[in-house]
Each structure stands twice: as structure tokens, then as C-alpha cells.
């Protein structure tokens, strides 16, 4: 069943020439977590706010559980959409206790039922003991969990999360996202999750949508996004790829690091770029036949990352076991070591 559906949604803010969201369409099946990821200003938060009803789309339709929520003619206000939202700054009501915050969305229910629901949720997020506290007396992680409990309490059709971990410390962030993912999966919630951190998106999402300047570049499973990026932007943003220029030839690509034999649909002679990750490149120290020089070495514990400058001018990165230590300035012979097909993009895409 499709819980959320967007059809050709566009939104442009006054005083901005570029639309914040441009002709966006996707479907999200119930029970899945969709992570919207992209650099800041790419339109992912606007998308979330459009779904919540905090912004009106200029064009297109938004359906939640098959009901039309927004179109040029129709606009259902946020309070009647049945969505739960977790805000970046958590937005806990400072004049209400933890209990009252979580109960805020349960208005009109019998008192006993409210107490039971709130207690169940607080137990789930592990905050029963703090029910009587006010938000200012909570730590960042506790606030985060209250915000989640509050959004989940009215049993929303859809949970929307806007960079919920960005205000937490790095180690707290790792701990919280595991907990939060566990809770969301346990509840079987349908979630749209916004982040600018690709690692967080890979961790949280059952499904990923990569945004760039108002457009969705690719949507799909995390593995697909990572290994078969649809565009150069996705490969660059999700995979920390370097790009090696080359020319398409019959049955392969000609590159400064030698020929690459793999099938591709491009006509011969097309200028291309090959996406290379640090594990796709290898090198050996060489006095003769060297084609690159070591610029810098970064120690990463179990391995080193070397930054190489090819004689043709490009900068590449390569992983090496921690046993081999070479100084900056050393001449090396680099090659493509990948044993899987690499992503190739026509130049200028």
C-alpha cells in the first residue's frame, strides 16, 4: 500500500528565481523509511514541509494514504493531515512537562487512555522517569526522544523528521539513530527523514532519495544509490568519488591510468568521466613507469588513505594497508584495481 504519493510537486519562494522544489514525484510504500538526502538548500526540507502542510505547493498534488492533501485547488491544513513531525530544534513546548508535551496531540481522548498511551511511549523511548520534568532540564538526547514520542503519540499515518539528530553531539548521534530506527521499525511507522549526512541517510533509510538544487536526482535502495549512481552528482555526493577523465572506445574506456574494459552504451569518441572510489585505485612504488606522485598521507588506523596527483593533473585517493608507509613526494605507479564495473558518466553531465 502506498502511504505517501507526490505528483509533479513544485514550490518556488517569493524573491527566489530558482524553484526550491521542482517537479517532484515519488511514491512511498507504508512501513518504509525514506531518507531525503542532499546538500543544504537542495529542497529536501521544503519537501518535508510541503508534505506536512506547513507550505503550500505551487503545482502538483500530494496524497497521504490515497487522500488528496494538496493541489492547486485543495489545501488540507497541517492539523488535519494526520502527520507527526520531529523538528530539527525538537520544538518541545517549554511551558509543558515531558508528559504534557507527549499528551499534547492526544486531545479529546479519555484521560485514562491518554495516560496509558503516553506512558507506553515514554517507556518505549526510555524516559518514564522524566515524565514530570520540563524540557529545559533534559539533555539533548532526551529532548530528541521526547520529540519522537510526541510525534508518534497520535499514531500518525506518516512521521516526518527534519534533520532530527543535527543538534546532537557526534557520539550521541550514532547512539540515537540506532535507537530511533529501532523504535520506528518496531512501530511499523512510515517515515520521511531529511538529512544532509549521506552516512546517516544510508543508515536510516530503507529507501534513499538524493536531492540537488530542487530536483530529485535518484530514488532507490541504499545499495543501488551507492553502487549504481544515476548521475555524476549522486556518485560524488554519496560515494566520495574522484572523477577520472577518459574517452569512450569500442568495448571500453581509455583513461590516463590505462584502458578499462567494460561494456557501455556510449558512442566511441565520447568524452567521459569514470567515478573511482579510494578502494578502486591501487599503486606500487616505482622509479620507472611512474605516473603519479604522493601528495599527502592520512592515517586511518587499520589503513592509510593516500592522495595522489596523476601526471595528467587529476587528484585521486587510494586505500593502502597500514604496513606500507610512503612519504609525500614519492613517485608511484597507479592503476585501477576494481574488479567490478565502474560508473561512467558522459562529460559535462
Amino acid at each position: 500500500m502506498i502511504a505517501l504519493s507526490l505528483r509533479h510537486v513544485s514550490k518556488r519562494f517569493a524573491r527566489n528565481a530558482q524553484p526550491a522544489v521542482n517537479d517532484l514525484s515519488f511514491d512511498l510504500p507504508a512501513g518504509q523509511i525514506l531518507a531525503l538526502v542532499g546538500p543544504s538548500g537542495c529542497g529536501k526540507t521544503t519537501t518535508l514541509r510541503l508534505i506536512a502542510g506547513l507550505e503550500r505547493p505551487d503545482r502538483g498534488e500530494i496524497f497521504i494514504n490515497g487522500r488528496l492533501m494538496a493541489s492547486p485547488q485543495v489545501f488540507v491544513p497541517p492539523e488535519r493531515r494526520g502527520v507527526g513531525m520531529v523538528f530539527q530544534d525538537h520544538a518541545l513546548f517549554p511551558h509543558l512537562t515531558v508528559f504534557e508535551n507527549v499528551a499534547f496531540g492526544l486531545r479529546g481522548k479519555p484521560r485514562a487512555q491518554v495516560r496509558e498511551t503516553v506512558n507506553t511511549l515514554l517507556e518505549m523511548v526510555g524516559l518514564q522517569a522524566l515524565a514530570g520534568r520540563y524540557p529545559h532540564a533534559l539533555s539533548g538526547g532526551e529532548r530528541q526522544r521526547v520529540a519522537l514520542a510526541r510525534a508518534l503519540a497520535p499514531r500518525p499515518v506518516l512521521v516526518l523528521m527534519d534533520e532530527p539528530f543535527s543538534s546532537l553531539d557526534a557520539d550521541m548521534r550514532l547512539e540515537m539513530r540506532e535507537q530511533v530506527r529501532g523504535i520506528l521499525k518496531e512501530m511499523g511507522a512510515t517515515v520521511v527523514f531529511v538529512t544532509h549526512d549521506q552516512e546517516e541517510a544510508l543508515f536510516m533509510g530503507d529507501c534513499l532519495a538524493v536531492f540537488n538544487s530542487g530536483r530529485m536526482e535518484q530514488i532507490g535502495a541504499p545499495e543501488a544509490i551507492f553502487h549504481t549512481s544515476a548521475t555524476r552528482f549522486v556518485a560524488e555526493f554519496m560515494g566520495d568519488s574522484d572523477f577520472l577523465p577518459g574517452v569512450a572506445v569500442e568495448g571500453g574506456i581509455h583513461t590516463p591510468l590505462g584502458a578499462l574494459f567494460q561494456r557501455h552504451p556510449l558512442p566511441a569518441g565520447t568524452p567521459v568521466e569514470v567515478a573511482l572510489r579510494a578502494d578502486d585505485v591501487d599503486f606500487v612504488p616505482a622509479a620507472e613507469n611512474a605516473n603519479a606522485v604522493i601528495v599527502e598521507r592520512f592515517f586511518r588506523g587499520a589503513f592509510h588513505v593516500y592522495r595522489l596527483r596523476l601526471d595528467s593533473g587529476e587528484v585521486m585517493h587510494a586505500f593502502k594497508a597500514h604496513t606500507l608507509v610512503l612519504p609525500a613526494g614519492a613517485r608511484v605507479q597507479a592503476r585501477i584495481s576494481a574488479e567490478h564495473p565502474l560508473m561512467v558518466f558522459p562529460k559535462g553531465q
Binding site: A52, G53, L54, P77, P78, E79, R81, G84, M85, A91
Partner: peptide, 15 residues
């Protein structure tokens, strides 16, 4: 913070 008012809206309150 404007998110406080927005949070109230998503939790079922009118303007």
C-alpha cells in the same frame, strides 16, 4: 521559535 507553532499545528491544533 516558529517550529513551536508548527509543531502544535502538526499535533492537531488550528491556527
Amino acid at each position: 521559535s516558529p517550529t513551536l507553532e508548527e509543531a502544535a499545528r502538526t499535533l492537531g491544533r488550528t491556527g
